[in-house]
C-alpha cells in the first residue's frame, strides 16, 4: 500500500517535472543569487502567462490529433487588432470580444486548409503563420500602436496579491479546459479522435468537426493571449509574441501531449511543464546569456522534448506489441 503510493507519486509526471523544476531553480540560484528575488518570480509568472495561455488552445488541438504552428502569429495579430480597435474609441470589452472573434476566424481558415482542402497541418499552418505575421506588420505599418491607460491595460498589469492578473486568467482558463477535457463527453471524444481516428469514426464521431472546433478555439485563445500581452505592454506591436508558440509547444510536449498523436495530458502537468520552461528561459536571462543564444537554447529544449516524446512513443508502441502483462 505504502510502496504503491510512493510508486504512484514518482510515476506521476507532474511530480517528476516539479522535481526537475526545483533542480533548475537551484542551479540558476547558484549561478546568480538574484534569481530568486520576488520581482524575478513575477517575471516568470508574466512570461508564463503568455505562452501558457497559448499552450491551452494548442494542447487541446494537439490532443485532438492536429497542430497549429501559427498560434504565435495569431496571438501577435490579436494584439495588434485589439490596439487598433481601442484606438477607434471602442468600448474595451467589445474590442476584446471582437479580437477573440477574429482569432476564431483565423483558426477557421487554418481548419479549412486542413479539413476541407486536406493539406498537412504542419505545412499549411506554417504558411498561415507567415501570412498572419505579415498582416500584423501591414496593418500597423510596422510600428507599435499605443494603448492608453485604462481598464483594459489593467487586465495586463493588475495584480491580486502577488499574482499578476494575466497569470490568474491563464490559471482559470487551464482549470476550465482541464475540466472540459476530463469531465465532459466532448472532451473525451476529442481525445479519442487524437488517439485513434478510425475507431472514432466507426463510433460515429466526426473527426473533422472536432478538429475544426479546436482550430477555432486555438485561434481564439491565441488572440486573447496576444491581447492580454498588448494590455501588459501598453501597445500592440507586430513583433510581439515572437517565439511564444514554441514555448507553448515545448510545454505541451514536455507535459505529455504527443506530437505523434495519441498522447494526452492533464492541464496540471502542462502547468508544471510551463513553469519549468519559463523558469529555464528566465534563468538564462538572469545569468545574462546573450539573447540570440537564448533562442538557441530554447530551440534545443524543444528538440529535447521531441526526443523524449519519440522515446515515450516508441516505448508505448513496444509495450503495446508485447502486450505488457495484466
Amino acid at each position: 500500500m505504502n510502496g504503491s503510493f510512493i510508486k504512484r507519486i514518482t510515476r506521476n509526471k507532474a511530480f517528476s517535472l516539479a522535481i526537475i523544476m526545483f533542480a533548475v531553480w537551484i542551479i540558476f540560484f547558484l549561478l546568480n543569487h538574484n534569481y530568486f528575488v520576488g520581482e524575478n518570480f513575477t517575471g516568470i509568472m508574466n512570461t508564463s502567462s503568455l505562452s501558457g495561455t497559448i499552450a491551452i488552445g494548442l494542447a487541446c488541438l494537439m490532443m485532438s490529433g492536429s497542430i497549429d504552428l501559427s498560434a504565435g502569429a495569431e496571438g501577435c495579430f490579436g494584439g495588434v487588432l485589439v490596439a487598433l480597435f481601442l484606438r477607434t474609441g471602442m468600448n474595451w470589452i467589445l474590442a476584446l470580444l471582437l479580437t477573440i472573434l477574429c482569432g476564431v476566424v483565423m483558426g477557421l481558415i487554418n481548419a479549412f486548409w486542413v479539413n476541407a482542402m486536406k493539406l498537412m497541418p504542419f505545412i499549411s499552418t506554417i504558411a498561415m503563420s507567415s501570412i498572419y505575421q505579415a498582416m500584423a506588420v501591414i496593418v500597423t505599418k510596422s510600428s507599435e500602436i499605443a494603448i492608453g491607460e485604462g481598464p483594459f491595460t489593467r487586465l495586463g498589469t493588475g495584480h491580486i496579491g502577488i499574482f499578476p492578473l494575466p497569470f490568474i486568467i491563464m490559471v482559470i482558463l487551464m482549470v476550465i479546459y482541464g475540466l472540459m477535457l476530463n469531465y465532459t463527453k466532448f472532451g473525451r471524444r476529442l481525445i479519442l479522435c487524437g488517439g485513434n481516428r478510425t475507431a472514432a469514426r466507426l463510433a460515429g464521431i466526426n473527426h473533422q468537426k472536432i478538429t475544426t472546433i479546436m482550430f477555432a478555439n486555438c485561434g481564439a485563445i491565441s488572440a486573447l493571449a496576444g491581447a492580454i500581452l498588448a494590455a501588459r505592454m501598453n501597445n500592440g506591436g507586430p513583433r510581439a509574441v515572437l517565439g511564444a508558440e514554441m514555448d507553448a509547444m515545448t510545454a505541451a510536449i514536455i507535459g505529455g501531449v504527443s506530437f505523434l498523436g495519441g498522447g494526452t495530458s492533464g492541464m496540471g502537468t502542462i502547468f508544471v511543464a510551463l513553469l519549468l520552461v519559463n523558469s529555464f528561459n528566465n534563468g538564462l536571462q538572469v545569468i545574462k546569456v546573450n539573447s540570440f543564444w537564448q533562442f538557441v537554447t530554447r530551440g534545443g529544449l524543444l528538440i529535447l522534448a521531441l526526443i523524449v516524446d519519440y522515446f515515450r512513443e516508441s516505448r508505448r508502441q513496444k509495450a503495446l506489441k508485447q502486450g505488457a502483462k495484466v
Partner: peptide, 16 residues
C-alpha cells in the same frame, strides 16, 4: 480499433 493510451473503461464506451 482501440486507443492504447486511454483506459479500458473509455475504450468500452468509445466516445458514447
Amino acid at each position: 480499433q482501440l486507443v492504447p493510451s486511454m483506459s479500458v473503461l473509455e475504450n468500452i464506451y468509445c466516445g458514447d
